[in-house]
Write a protein that binds this DNA or RNA. Structure first.
Lengths: 137, 137
DNA sequence: GTGAATGCAAATGGTTTGCAACGTA
DNA sequence: TACGTTGCAAACCATTTGCATTCAC
C-alpha cells in the first residue's frame, strides 16, 4: 500500500489503526461510507474509535491516498491508486458500477473552454436508475 | 408563479408563508441555501419558523416546482421554471455561474449507451476554480 | 522521553419530527 | 367546522472537537 510510504514521507506515525483503515479502503473494491469503514475496522480490531477513523480518513485524503465524495447524506471514500473513474449508483437497488473517467473529460474541457472554470471531476458519484430497475418501472 | 397553481391542484393550502417561500426561490436568480431562504423569508415576515421553510421546500420539491441539490455541507434550492442548467461554483471565491444543460447531455447519453444507467443530471452543482482564482494561484 | 495519535465524551449544526395551537377553505 | 399548516422545542445523526491518556519513534 503506497499510502504507507506516503505517511512515512510526511513524518506521520504508522499505527495499527491507520494500517487497518488504509487496508479497508485498499481491499474493498467499492467505495465505502465512513460507517462501513468503521464496521470493517472494529471487526478486526474492536475498540477502535469512530473519531480515529474520521481523523485518519481526513489524513489520508490530505495525503492524496483517498478520495472523498458526497453521496446521499454523507461521504464516500475511495482509494486513489487505480487511476480515476466515476461511480454510477442505482438509487433503487443500490447497484454500483465504476465508469470510465473519460466520460466526463469532454464536459470538463467544455467547462474550461466556455466558462474558464477549472473543475475537478474525479470519482464523481452519479445517481440514477440501473438497467434492471429502469425496466421494472 | 406556476407553483401556486400546482399546489392548488394538489389540494394543498396556499398560506402567506408558502407564497413567500415560493417568491424567494422564484425571484432570486442564483440557487439558494436553506439558510438564505430562511433569512429572506424572515426579513419579510418575522416569526416564520425554520421548519416551515424546510417543510415547504420539501413540498415544492415533491410538487416539481423546485430542485434540490447537494452543495458543500447542505442543500441548495433552485426553481424549476426556466429549463435546466448546471451551476459552477468557485471553491475559493464562491462565484457562481450557470452553465448550459447540454454540457452534460453527452455524458448522460454515453452513460446510458455504455452502462445502461439512466441518470438524471439536472441542476448539478460542480465545484472548481473560476478563471480569476485559477490565475491567482 | 516527546510529540503525535488515540479513546472518550461532549459539542456541532443543518435538517427533521412530535405535538399543541392556529388558520384556510 | 375540519383538517391541513404552523411555531416551538426537542430529537437526529453523521461528523468534529477538547482533553487526558497512550504509544510510535
Amino acid at each position: 500500500m503506497s499510502c504507507v510510504f506516503t505517511l512515512k514521507q510526511k513524518g506521520l506515525k504508522l499505527t495499527p489503526q491507520r494500517r487497518l483503515i488504509a487496508e479497508a479502503i485498499h481491499d474493498i473494491p467499492t467505495h465505502l461510507s465512513a460507517e462501513e469503514i468503521i464496521i470493517y475496522v472494529q471487526d478486526k480490531m474492536p475498540g477502535v474509535n469512530k473519531s480515529t477513523v474520521y481523523r485518519t480518513l481526513e489524513l489520508l485524503e490530505e495525503a492524496g491516498c483517498v478520495y472523498r465524495s458526497r453521496m446521499g447524506d454523507g461521504f464516500v471514500y475511495h482509494h486513489a491508486e487505480e487511476g480515476h473513474h466515476h461511480h454510477l449508483v442505482c438509487r433503487k437497488c443500490g447497484e454500483t458500477v465504476d465508469c470510465d473517467e473519460d466520460l466526463l473529460a469532454s464536459a470538463e474541457q467544455a467547462i474550461a473552454d466556455q466558462y474558464g472554470f477549472h473543475v475537478d471531476l474525479k470519482h464523481v458519484v452519479i445517481r440514477g436508475l440501473c438497467q434492471d430497475c429502469t425496466r421494472e418501472t
